[in-house]
Design a protein around this nucleic acid. Structure first.
Length: 922
RNA sequence: GCCCGGGUGGCGGAAUUGGUAGACGCGCUGGACUCAAAAUCCAGUGAUAGCAAUAUCGUGUGGGUUCGAUUCCCACCUCGGGUACCA
């Protein structure tokens, strides 16, 4: 009988569960290692074959680390709050918790079948009050802290209050929403409400009137990373800009630290680049421009102070504070009209019509502090209110956007940089930072880079401004007008927000009758009865966004049952941070920024012992679907095989990939698939119906979703695990394609036959030969290297070669097969356990030690060194492995006359690379 | 537009980083075993020429560095990802 994967896999999965094989303690003599997967959102569709790719890779690594003698924390849980469950609830009235629990049960079952080594006792669900208690707790801490720029860390808000009471804002360098100045006396003169309002300007979790991404269809606001090209990422609905009073997290205060932290962690450069771009540090200067006939000044941010002599006008963002103040009476009407036009436009229109140049003259004039010239002040949507100061100095000659604006409104264009190539300014602007300054007073003749420095110094000297670093990174909007999320631990008194006492946590999500906004437009929580404190103060109606629950879950896994702290000191000090984090690169600007921010904050307040939560990050690629097509001859129920379809007029139809094998359609299954195909006729080629195919996203509508359960039923979990790894490099995107899975399956059967033949164990106690040792050690070395370097796709061939070689040698020796089983265990744990058991062990292979390889077995007696002549291999010298220069020379001298003359040409030069190759030049 | 990655047989992909390109698997061809099929095993399989040994060409294109380049440099073509009036 052949290898029976069904019974074997079931047996070992039960064994692991009963013996709690993968349970891990928070203390150990062994070194620790923390391997984490990005926990899934349990959707109603269940796992498809693409989901486990990263889990398999991290499981291989976890198992390997365990075999290498580490105490490995490898947990799993569920990111349980989310829009799909809520929308399902709206449609059906079913409580999202019910749907979510069902989906989680299904996911857990599917995951167990794949044979992962998770410690399920540490499972967390973000919608569990025992868990979200700590999400709420963290929020309270953020409310109670501000970011001190001097200390470069979060500080208790009480310190800030003390500072205000003694010196006002003098000497306070705190991250804030709007810069403010007041004295201690002014502070004390304010009442409680006014003081609270002021403090919101500094808190790390704060409530403020801000411009937000509002999605009318979803009825909620969204964070920047949840908006793609002006549409909501989930659902794809239009998003508009709207001013609303919302909770935000002061992520921007941490911009520099998040940037610096990237240098200390082992992530793919491409992902670091994405985060660097998202943080968008830009070094420049803030500069003040006087207004003509007014005490007002306009402050601008620029990265090109060198071009200040080329400033010929200024532009204000329509939404900026300046716009109302600087509009001259005679321009009131025109400006009002323009603003009406701007507000009407959606974010989407603004983005898709970037080339469209619009604007209006404000009626004011500013004065260029360097030339003394009067310049007009304009208002245009191409200037963003949210970046810099919301106003710019325009240099049309050297900025393409300013250039387009100047062209449209006939404003002067003055070149101040000579690129030395005679750039034609009637065609386009010259934006490069290269060349010499002209028309620029005291900086004439300087190189651009020198000029930037010179003007910056002059600006400081004349107190016209100061150098300044701006970041693109914005604060994260933290309110969602939804039901299925964490409630805020917030109540309102006199319209000001206050935090619930920590002893009141968790504040549990209330039951409501319907999951829709109220008739008055309040969020769903507005429907909750008695949604107020004991004193009768109303509670917050918004809930937290999806990223709240996933921002510190890795800490909770360390100590998941602790009800006194998010994570206990000891557990935290032991596990510290995640050593290996496996997950998709699509979270680069969302989860991976937020959780880094969150962890930096927790570090500041002494909760997390490490600043960076994830030491090493591997991004597994996406597995795409491979769709299959059938071709229906138009106007008939005839289907023609792909190779013959061009002879007919056909319609291409998606066909369920589960009734197609290696692109050959199971015609009987097809007839049963849908009633309308019951009478289908087929035009075959070589007695087969061949389907067409294409790579598409894996989705229900394309009928290309492959369920891992089906693969496991047919081939077993070990084959699924090996095959997913064999498919290609872990990081690459690749289509799911079962052609080739047979090869992996065959390997496992072959491997099995090394241990069992004709139902009998065949392992012997004979001493292995030199050759057999070599096969083993070669494999150990290769696989160990591959695992350490996440090159799992190349270790499967190593196993195949090893098995083939041992089969050819008829090797059934314990001394070879026992260590080999351990080496295979991370990849194919079920079969490894079974053969381990067969070899007479009563424990799990998990307790074994990953074998070390011994170079002595790998040493070659001799090696054929190719000797090339003018680059072409002419003959080979057989020499000891890693022969030195002297040995090679000796061999060459002993060699025939051909070395002096090759192909009739005298040898001029001989290149000897010790241990490698000899090359001869004529 | 800007910033990253990739382009290797019929296909998925190796080549651990400058040293015999195409490992391994799939597919295909032929053979063994079988009444037959499945399963299994063996051999072949980049292109061209040749019975053959072998020769020539060959890692997106064109140049360069090197005794030697899939690997390094320059330019271009192309596919994928990120980002975008960020001053």
């Amino acid at each position: 009988m052949e290898y029976n994967f069904k019974d074997v896999e079931k047996k070992w999965q039960e064994y692991w569960r009963e013996h709690k094989t993968y349970r891990v303690e928070n203390r150990s003599d062994k070194p620790k290692f923390y391997v984490l997967d990005m926990f899934p959102y349990p959707s109603g569709a269940g796992l498809h074959v693409g989901h486990p790719l990263g889990y398999i890779a991290s499981d291989i690594y976890s198992r390997y680390k365990r075999l290498k003698g580490f105490n490995v924390l490898h947990p799993m849980g569920f990111d349980a709050y989310g829009l799909p469950a809520e929308q399902y609830a709206i449609q059906t009235g079913q409580h999202p918790a019910v749907t979510t629990e069902q989906n989680i049960a299904r996911y857990r079952e599917q995951l167990e079948k794949i044979g992962f080594s998770f410690d399920w006792e540490r499972e967390i669900e973000t919608c569990d009050p025992h868990y979200y208690k700590w999400t709420q707790w963290a929020f309270i801490q953020m409310f109670n802290h501000f970011y001190c720029r001097d200390a470069q860390k979060a500080r208790p808000i009480s310190e800030l209050v003390k500072a205000f009471e003694t010196n006002g804002t003098d000497g306070v360098h705190a991250a804030c929403t709007v810069p403010m100045e007041f004295t201690a006396a002014e502070w004390k003169a304010r009442n409680e409400k006014e003081q609270q309002e002021l403090l919101l300007n500094y808190r790390i979790a704060y409530l403020a009137e801000t411009m937000v991404n509002w999605c009318p269809q979803l009825g909620t606001v969204l964070a920047n990373d949840e908006v793609k090209d002006g549409f909501s990422e989930r659902g794809g609905f239009p998003v508009v800009q709207k001013k609303m009073r919302q909770w935000s997290l002061r992520v921007s205060a941490y911009a520099q630290r998040l940037l610096d932290g990237l240098e200390t962690i082992d992530w793919a450069d491409s992902l670091k680049d994405i985060q660097r771009n998202w943080i968008g540090r830009s070094q420049g200067a803030e500069m003040l421009f006087d207004l003509k006939g007014s005490e007002e000044k306009i402050e601008v941010f620029t990265t090109r102070p060198d071009t200040v002599f080329g400033v010929t006008f200024m532009v204000l963002a329509p939404e900026s504070e300046y716009t109302a103040r600087l509009t001259a009476p005679e321009q009131q009407e025109a400006v009002r009209e323009y603003l009406a036009y701007v507000t009407k436009r959606t974010e989407r229109e603004r983005q898709s019509e970037v080339k469209r140049v619009t604007g209006v003259f404000s009626g004011s004039y500013a004065v260029n502090p360097f030339t003394g010239e009067e310049i007009s002040v304009w208002i245009s949507e191409y200037v963003l209110a949210g970046y810099g100061t919301g106003a710019i100095m325009a240099v049309p000659a050297h900025d393409s956007r300013d250039y387009a604006f100047a062209r449209k409104f006939n404003l002067p264009i003055v070149p101040v940089i000579d690129d030395g190539q005679g750039h034609d300014l009637s065609e386009s602007s010259y934006d490069a930072k290269e060349g010499r300054m002209i028309n620029s007073g005291f900086i004439n003749g300087l190189e651009v880079k020198e000029a930037i420095r010179a003007v910056a110094e002059e600006v400081e000297k004349r107190s016209l401004g100061k150098s300044k670093i701006n970041y693109r990174l914005r604060d994260a909007i933290f309110s969602r007008q939804r039901y299925w999320g964490e409630p805020f631990p917030v109540y309102y008194k006199d319209d000001m927000p206050y935090m619930l006492d920590e002893s009141k946590l968790p504040l549990e999500l209330p039951e409501i009758d319907k999951y829709l906004p109220t008739e008055t437009g309040e969020p769903p929580l507005g429907r909750a009865k008695n949604w107020e404190t004991e004193e009768g103060c109303p509670l917050e109606l918004n809930t937290m966004p999806g990223f709240a629950g996933s921002s510190a879950y890795y800490l909770r896994y360390m100590d998941p049952h602790n009800d006194r702290a998010l994570v206990g000191r000891e557990a935290d000090a032991y596990w510290r941070s995640v050593d290996l984090y496996m997950g998709g690169a699509e979270h680069a600007t969302g989860h991976l920024i937020y959780s880094r921010f969150w962890n930096h904050f927790l570090y500041d307040i002494g909760i997390s012992v490490e600043q960076e939560p994830f030491r090493k990050l591997i991004n597994q690629g996406m597995i795409q679907g491979r769709s299959n097509f059938v071709y229906r001859v138009q106007g008939s129920n005839m289907f023609v095989s792909a190779g013959l379809k061009d002879q007919y007029e056909t319609t291409e139809l998606h066909v369920d990939v589960n009734i197609v094998h290696n692109d050959i359609l199971d015609t009987e299954a097809f007839r049963k698939w849908r009633p309308e195909y019951a009478t289908a006729e087929f035009i075959l080629e070589e007695r087969k119906y061949i389907c067409g195919w294409a790579v598409e996203k894996m989705s229900k509508s394309m009928f290309n979703v492959v369920n891992p359960d089906d693969i496991i039923a047919e081939y077993g979990a070990d084959t699924l695990r090996l095959y997913e790894m064999f498919l290609g490099p872990l990081e690459a995107h690749k289509p799911w394609d079962t052609q080739g899975i047979d090869g992996v399956f065959k390997f496992l059967r072959k491997f099995w036959r090394l241990f069992v033949q004709d139902d009998r164990p065949v392992v012997t106690e004979e001493a292995p030969s030199k050759e057999e040792w070599k096969v083993l050690h070669k494999t150990i070395k290769k696989v160990a290297w591959d695992i350490e370097n996440f090159s799992f796709n190349t270790s499967i061939p190593a196993f195949m070669i090893c098995t083939n070689e041992l089969t050819a040698l008829k090797c059934h020796k314990r001394a070879i097969l026992e260590p080999l089983a351990v080496v295979l265990a991370p990849f194919a744990p079920h079969i490894a356990e079974e053969v381990w058991h067969l070899l007479g062990h009563n424990d799990s292979v998990t307790a074994a030690r990953f074998p070390e390889w011994d170079e002595a077995y790998l040493a070659e007696e001799a090696f054929d060194y190719p000797v090339s002549f003018n680059g072409k291999v002419r003959f080979k010298l057989s020499l000891p492995l890693a022969a030195g220069e002297a040995e090679i020379k000796a061999a060459v001298l002993a060699a025939p006359e051909t070395v002096k003359y090759l192909e009739g040409k005298p040898v001029k030069k001989m290149i000897i690379v010790p241990g490698k190759i000899i090359n001869i030049v004529a």
